[in-house]
């Protein structure tokens, strides 16, 4: 029997949601694939057609959240009229909202990724790519509209933004304030900074400055080192000094 694409997608999401439930309850280590598939009302073996490992379920849900964030942002009719700062703020805020029902699960994602960064990094690549595409799209639109200047190191920016969002999520997981008010405040204020950095093209300028410093000063010193080594007289003098007792 051929299963339609739609049904397949529904089963996939059901499995992810079941994984969130089971992993939230028992922790990643103790959760079993069997229990997840039963919770999702899927035959024991079928789960492996969708997710070959438990890790893939863990990170599959991250991708699912990122996808939901994108759908949500696309459903806001006047989203393109927001300022870039507000768009990024909305993006991160939406991410928090989407993670809210699975906050315990996210804690598991963080601790697993912390324990096995290589696996995490590999399995998160799809999510990161989607995040990068979303961020780059906003940035490009903003540059086209003349809202912010060309950003010379655009490849770097999506990665920085990803790290920023990860830091916000980490802060949120530790936030014990009522209704996560502290996170709301942090996000509000930090997105202002992010916005200002982009408007000023600061990341690019900073890197420009570093490379300028590097070229003019560090390389200069490299040259003088080269000269040092190349200068036989000094080398000789040094040897002579060091070999004083000879």
């Amino acid at each position: 029997m051929k299963i339609s694409k739609k049904v397949k997608e529904q089963t996939r999401i059901r499995l992810l949601e079941a994984a969130v439930d089971v992993i939230s309850e028992k922790g990643f280590e103790k959760a079993s694939m069997r229990e997840i598939s039963r919770r999702a009302d899927v035959a024991d073996a079928t789960i492996y057609n969708y997710f070959s490992t438990k890790e893939k379920l863990l990170y599959g849900y991250c991708e699912h959240v990122q996808q939901q964030v994108m759908d949500e942002l696309m459903s806001i009719e006047d989203f393109h009229e927001y300022s870039l700062r507000d768009q990024l703020h909305q993006m991160t805020e939406t991410k928090l909202t989407k993670w809210l029902p699975a906050r315990e699960f996210l804690t598991e994602v963080f601790s697993y990724t912390f324990a096995s960064p290589a696996t995490g990094n590999e399995l998160l690549s799809e999510t990161k790519n989607l995040s990068k595409r979303m961020f780059t799209d906003l940035l490009d639109a903003s540059i086209e509209a003349g809202e912010i200047p060309e950003q010379p190191y655009q490849d770097l920016l999506p990665r920085l933004f990803w790290d920023y969002e990860t830091a916000i999520l980490a802060y949120w997981l530790k936030d014990t304030s009522d209704e996560f008010a502290n996170t709301t405040k942090l996000l509000d204020q930090s997105s202002e900074i992010v916005g200002q950095l982009l408007i000023g093209g600061v990341v690019g300028k900073t890197l420009d400055m570093f490379s300028f410093l590097f070229r003019t000063h560090v390389l200069q010193h490299m040259n003088s080192l080269e000269n040092l080594f190349a200068d036989p007289e000094i080398m000789a003098a040094k040897r002579k000094f060091m070999g004083g007792e000879a």
Partner: peptide, 19 residues
């Protein structure tokens, strides 16, 4: 408050965005 936070409050309270 920017529109993001305004939207957040309305959505939290009434379950749908201001628009």
């Amino acid at each position: 408050l920017n529109r993001v936070l305004v939207g957040k409050v309305i959505e939290n309270e009434f379950g749908s965005r201001p628009d």
